[in-house]
Design a protein around this nucleic acid. Structure first.
Lengths: 219, 219
DNA sequence: GCAAAAGTGTTCTCTGTACACCCATGT
DNA sequence: ACATGGGTGTACAGAGAACACTTTTGC
C-alpha cells in the first residue's frame, strides 16, 4: 500500500497467525502447545497457528485459532509482533497473545496433533524458533500486568484476593506482600467486593471480589 | 507455520511495509508524508512505504524505505503494529516507526511523489486510513519517551538541555519545569556533560551534553 | 545597563515498601 | 485447642511536583 514510485512489484507472501495462549494453573504460568505429528519438526512442540483462510482478517484468524484450541472467546487477545524468517512454511508470522482462565478451557481432543499446557519455566523442544515468540509474549504479559487490568482474563467471574495474588506471583515470579497487594488492587479500582464469601477448609471464609471492568483498561 | 491439522491451505497475501518517520522541527512534532501523484487517492498524502522486495525481510524493507526517503540510517526504528483491510493495494501492512534528527535528513527530491514534513497536529487528508497508523505511532512515541532513552534519535550528537526539553515538550504537548526536567534526565544517567559550551546570542553560554548510549535502553 | 536564556535548591506530597498480629472456621 | 488460611495498620524512604532568583553573555 501507500506511496511509492518504484516499479510496482507486488510481493505476495505466505502469511500465518500464531497465538500464545497463557493460563495460570497450580500457581504456574503455562502456555498451550501442540505436538507436531508430521514433518517438519515431527515430535517437537509448536504454538497453535496456521494460515489465514480466504478473506479472513488476522484478528479473525487469531480469534478462530484460540476458540478452536480452547473453546473460549471473549477473553483478552492482543497482537504481539510480526516475525519473518522463522523457518516454517510461512514467510511472515503475525503472533498474538491471549489470556484464559484455566477452568473455562476445554482443550480440543486430538490424538495426533495433541494440545497440552506446558509451564513456561520448563518448555519442551520447540519448532520454528517459537521460543522467541514465547519469550516476547511473556515479557509483554509481565509489563501489561503492571499497568493494565488484563489479569481479569486469567480469573473467573468471582475470586478471592489470594487467588488473584497467586496469579500475579506466578507471572512475575516473585512473592508479594499480602497487605500491600490488597491495598494496591483495591485502590486502583480494578476490582470490588461482591459481598459474598466462600468457605473453603478449616479457616475463615474469604471475601469474593469481581472486576469492575472485564474490558482491557490502561491504568 | 506451526502446528495445524486442517487441510493445508496456504494463504499468499500481498504484504507491504510503511514507516512513520517522526522528527521535531521548530518545536513541533512532524511526520514525513508523500503526496500521491497517481490513483488511487491521487493528491492525498500517505506514509512512505511499499511492497517487500524479493527475499527482503520486513525489517530490511523498513530500513530501506527510511534511508530512501531521508538518507539516514542508524536511528531508532521499531516495528509498530500489523494492520489489514486498510483499503490500499496491500492486504497486510506492517507498520514501523522511526525517529530522526531533522538536521541530518536530506529528503528525496521528487517532483511527482514529493515527500514533506507535516506537523502531526495539522495533517492534510491522508490515504488508506493512515491516520490510524499515525495515531498509534504517536501514542507509542509518547509512552517510549517516558521509560526509554529513544529521544537520543531526535537530537544531534551534542545538544543543550533546553533543546532536549523542547523535544519532550513538543511530543508530550505540555510544558515542563526546567529544574525538575534537568534533575530527572541527568539523574536517569541517559546523558552526561561534555565539558564544552555553546555561545548563542545575548546570554550565558549553554553546557553541551551527549547521550551515554546511542542504543535504545529501557530505564 | 538591559534584555535574554542558562543555571541552580528546598519543601511538600504522595507512593511504594517493609513488617506482625488477630480472626473465623473445621476438625 | 489447634491448625489453617483470611484479614488488617503504621512507619519510613524515595520520587515527583511546585516554586523564584542569580548568572553570564551580547548589544
Amino acid at each position: 500500500m501507500s506511496a511509492q514510485r518504484a516499479p510496482r512489484y507486488t510481493g505476495r507472501v505466505s502469511t500465518a497467525v500464531v497465538v500464545v495462549i497463557f493460563t495460570v494453573r497450580d500457581g504456574e504460568l503455562c502456555a498451550l502447545l501442540i505436538e507436531r505429528a508430521a514433518e517438519p519438526c515431527k515430535g517437537q512442540w509448536a504454538l497453535p497457528g496456521g494460515a489465514l483462510l480466504p478473506d479472513e482478517t488476522i484478528d479473525g484468524a487469531a480469534t478462530r485459532k484460540l476458540a478452536d484450541e480452547t473453546g473460549v472467546s471473549d477473553v483478552f487477545l492482543e497482537q504481539l509482533y510480526t516475525f519473518d524468517k522463522l523457518g516454517g512454511k510461512a514467510d511472515i508470522v503475525v503472533a498474538y497473545f491471549a489470556l484464559v482462565d484455566f477452568e473455562r478451557t476445554r482443550l480440543r481432543e486430538d490424538l495426533e496433533w495433541r494440545p497440552a499446557w506446558h509451564p513456561v519455566r520448563a518448555l519442551p523442544p520447540l519448532a520454528f524458533q517459537n521460543e522467541r515468540i514465547l519469550a516476547l509474549a511473556e515479557q509483554r504479559l509481565r509489563n501489561k500486568l503492571e499497568y493494565t487490568n488484563v489479569v481479569y482474563s486469567l480469573l473467573p467471574e468471582r475470586f478471592t484476593l489470594t487467588e488473584m495474588q497467586q496469579v500475579y506471583e506466578a507471572i512475575l515470579g516473585e512473592t508479594m506482600d499480602k497487605r500491600n497487594f490488597r491495598r494496591r488492587v483495591v485502590g486502583l479500582g480494578i476490582i470490588r467486593e461482591t459481598g459474598q464469601t466462600r468457605k473453603r477448609g478449616a479457616h475463615r471464609p474469604a471475601m469474593l471480589y469481581e472486576f469492575t471492568s472485564r474490558e482491557p483498561v490502561t491504568l
